[in-house]
Amino acid sequence: MAAPDHLFALRNNFYLGAYQATINNSDIPHLPSDDAVEKDCLVYRSYIALGSYQLVINEIGSSAPTPLQVVKLLALYLSGSENKENTILRLQELLKDAAIGSNPTLRLIAGIIYMHEQDYNEALKHTNAGGTMELHALNVQIYLKMHRSDYAEKQLKIMLQIDEDHTLTQLANAWLNLAVGGSKIQEAYLIFQDFSEKFPMTGMILNGKAICCMHMGRFDEAESLLLEALNKDAKDAETLANLIVCSLHLGKSSSRYLSQLKLSYPDHMLVKRASAAEESFDRAIQANA
């Protein structure tokens, strides 16, 4: 008989973006030591997802186990409090260490950081071997970023063979369907709809449904889903970005959402595009003045 999975509910909350619920429900007694470390990783990654980088940096000491040290590196990288280059150098040192270089958490965080750097080939060097459902799911994301839905589909097939009902398998399936488009959009919508019936509604599920609605031209429905997501987290970058796109399609002003996005995420792709467009417009005005 398989041992009971004490962290199933906690992992599920994390995968679906219920970060506060992950933190609130993390007091699980009598965990084996490996499970206790994984639980702490999930809790600290939830704090990172909520933007509480400094709490993670302060709480994870130098004697903490390797997986936690790596999670701390992610917090340092995203906080920008230390030079990003220094964080990446430290990451590379750990990856070269024969004793811990193949640690799945280390490979996962390496993949996430290199994906942020848009260095997808370097990310795949560390994630491609898989070994955990999270690594396979990250591979799907990386391949979709590279516009290689054919490779993403191969990763999804591996996940389907391991556990077709796994939350990450379903999520990866929805991401791939969205990337392929066409008739697959409806399939993606049904996956997010299924999540919303089974689990508490999160910003991630609401955004997933909203993106499907926008693809299907149902912008009013998308807007109401996104406003519900905004009520859950007024600073979520994905929600704000999707609201900007949705508002433009509805002929409504998106300036407030863009201002919020600029304040909270000055490096966001939409902010950079908007700034570039404004600069081009200003140059054109001056040239014709």
Rank of each mutant, 00 (worst) to 15 (best):
L74A: 06
L206V: 08
I48R: 07
F281I: 08
E164R: 13
M204V: 13
L176A: 03
V245S: 11
E223W: 00
D97M: 04
A277N: 14
F192P: 03
R107I: 02
Y44N: 14
L250F: 10
A234I: 11
D163F: 08
L7W: 05
L55H: 13
M204N: 08
N177P: 01
L226N: 06
K72H: 12
I244Y: 06
A137I: 05
D27A: 13
L176E: 03
N83R: 15
N207C: 15
I112L: 13
Y114L: 09
A99D: 07
A222S: 11
I100R: 03
Q141H: 03
Y265K: 05
L50E: 10
K209T: 05
E93R: 15
L138Y: 05
L138P: 01
S46Q: 11
D34L: 12
A276Q: 14
K232P: 04
H6R: 07
N58Q: 13
N25S: 06
L168P: 09
E228L: 07
I162L: 14
Q161I: 09
F14H: 15
C212E: 02
K84S: 11
D267Q: 13
S254E: 10
M214F: 05
Q260W: 00
L78Q: 14
K39E: 09
M201T: 09
F199N: 00
E117M: 03
A36G: 03
T22Y: 02
N173P: 00
H268L: 08
M216Y: 03
L135K: 00
I48A: 06
Q286D: 14
L176H: 00
A137W: 04
Y44Q: 12
P67W: 02
R107E: 04
L261H: 10
D119L: 12
P65D: 01
A210I: 04
D97A: 05
A210S: 14
D150K: 11
E59N: 14
R45L: 15
L138S: 01
L176G: 04
E82R: 14
A36V: 05
N24L: 08
N177V: 00
S280E: 15
A274M: 05
V70M: 01
V56D: 09
E85G: 04
E82P: 02
V271S: 04
P32N: 03
A210N: 03
L225T: 01
Q161Y: 07
M214A: 09
I28Q: 01
L263S: 13
G101H: 02
S275N: 15
Y19S: 08
H136N: 10
A99R: 07
N25T: 02
E82M: 10
E59F: 02
I100S: 06
N86L: 09
I191L: 07
A179P: 02
Q260E: 11
L7D: 06
N288C: 13
L124H: 07
H249I: 04
D119G: 01
N83T: 09
Y120A: 01
I113Q: 01
F8A: 13
S196A: 05
S52H: 11
N177E: 09
S255C: 04
T239Q: 09
V56L: 09
I244E: 00
T22S: 04
L171I: 14
L95K: 06
A172N: 11
C213K: 09
G17L: 07
D5N: 15
I57N: 04
E278F: 11
D220M: 06
Q118A: 10
E134L: 10
N121L: 12
R11D: 00
D35T: 00
S52N: 13
A129K: 14
T66Y: 01
E197D: 11
